[in-house]
Design a protein around this nucleic acid. Structure first.
Lengths: 219, 219
DNA sequence: AAGTGTGAAGCCTTTCACAGCC
DNA sequence: GGCTGTGAAAGGCTTCACACTT
């Protein structure tokens, strides 16, 4: 879940990291139903947050609504895309094309036009050359070249735990500045690189606690 | 990445949810290197948290260490397993055996003895009957029966977004009390059910913001 | 001397409550 | 009247600092 993830929110106007992580949820909802008019309550109901939260989050970046009326859906979506830096287009490389890597590559290709996976890499010679989600899998030796050519800024690590550290090092060397890490290991990277760890086991075990605690509370 | 996830920590002694989510990381590290003696600093270094954090987290549940000395690795691991409710064994069902579901099923089967996937379900007739990670895929109609027979308490949703709501409803009906949801949708469930949403797109887009912000800060 | 356990302080995030505008 | 924008209050989590134990 989180390791040093939350040491992350440096920009000018000091935006809470929690706010940044909710913006994509707002954006998705706005895009899903191209409604002209939105209120903070409706947007909150659909994303699972409170209306105050929605208003406060947006207020960090400006005043996008009209009092007594609400928000214009299209305009707000545009603003959020701009804030997140999606309008410029985000390019990511993915290392480790097993089931998980394949699932992510397909998912991103299918559902995102603003985030694009521009390189798939694997050490397995049997996988190199195969095509997944419209991209040909390459060997790790091509990482630097592709990352540079495509100006990739994000990296996704879906390799086994013991390879993750080495892959992270290669990504940094290739100029990657943000990493989504699915391997259950704490990566050691410079302060300037953002790492988000997603660790299924941790989530499952934490869930086990809550379910058990609940059982104890209501016997 | 959180919707109503953090509305979660009701038990007797009011344990911070953040603490519960770190315990599995401590546990994994303790199990990885079966060292007899651990200090909070070493455990913190390995998991990526501060030593005070480690001590405070553990202190919520008791005094497991020896002053001036440290913690006994085996004993501490045992305590954490007990706290999380893992010693009783946790049983989960998984719905949606695509690439992502397959990856998770394999991963859990390979790396967990305390969390076990006792049922795999899919609506696709072509998948039903196939075997993944040692378990045969069944149709959704068998969910209630299997969940009851195996006393499953957790559910993992790895179906496409538009099916997630219906699957969640079926899981609740089958008596599931904790859900790990990989579909990018807010599920609506009763207060008593714990839901943890894991949403790749949100993470990727949030990462895009941080990377961009960094770029702005150091032009 | 070394390292745990813990109140107190500080920081971050959410919620409240209401003024302001349409 | 309805809904946004926002200071103030509340709540939750992390860090500090130190007493305490071996």
């Amino acid at each position: 879940m989180d390791r040093r993830d939350d040491a992350t929110n440096p920009p000018g106007r000091r935006i809470p990291g929690a706010t940044v992580r909710r913006l994509p949820a707002y954006l998705r909802t706005l895009e899903e139903t191209a409604d002209a008019r939105w209120t903070s309550s409706e947007l909150g109901r659909r994303t699972g947050f409170s209306s105050e939260q929605v208003r406060k989050d947006l207020a960090y970046f400006g005043a996008f609504g009209t009092r007594g009326v609400g928000y214009d859906g299209r305009a707000l979506a545009g603003q959020i895309r701009r804030i997140l830096g999606l309008d410029a287009g985000v390019r990511a490389v993915l290392v480790g094309v097993g089931h998980l890597g394949t699932a992510l590559a397909n998912f991103v290709a299918r559902t995102h036009q603003d985030v694009r996976i521009v390189g798939l890499f694997d050490v397995d010679p049997l996988k190199v050359g195969r095509e997944v989600a419209g991209t040909t899998i390459l060997g790790l030796e091509s990482l630097d070249r592709v990352a540079a050519e495509e100006a990739a800024s994000l990296g996704i690590i879906t390799v086994p735990s013991d390879a993750a550290g080495a892959v992270a090092a290669r990504l940094l060397q290739a100029g990657i500045r943000g990493i989504l890490n699915f391997a259950p290991t704490a990566l050691s990277v410079p302060e300037s690189v953002y790492v988000r760890n997603i660790d299924l086991s941790l989530e499952l075990q934490a869930l086990a606690y809550f379910v058990q605690a609940e059982a104890v509370t209501h016997p």
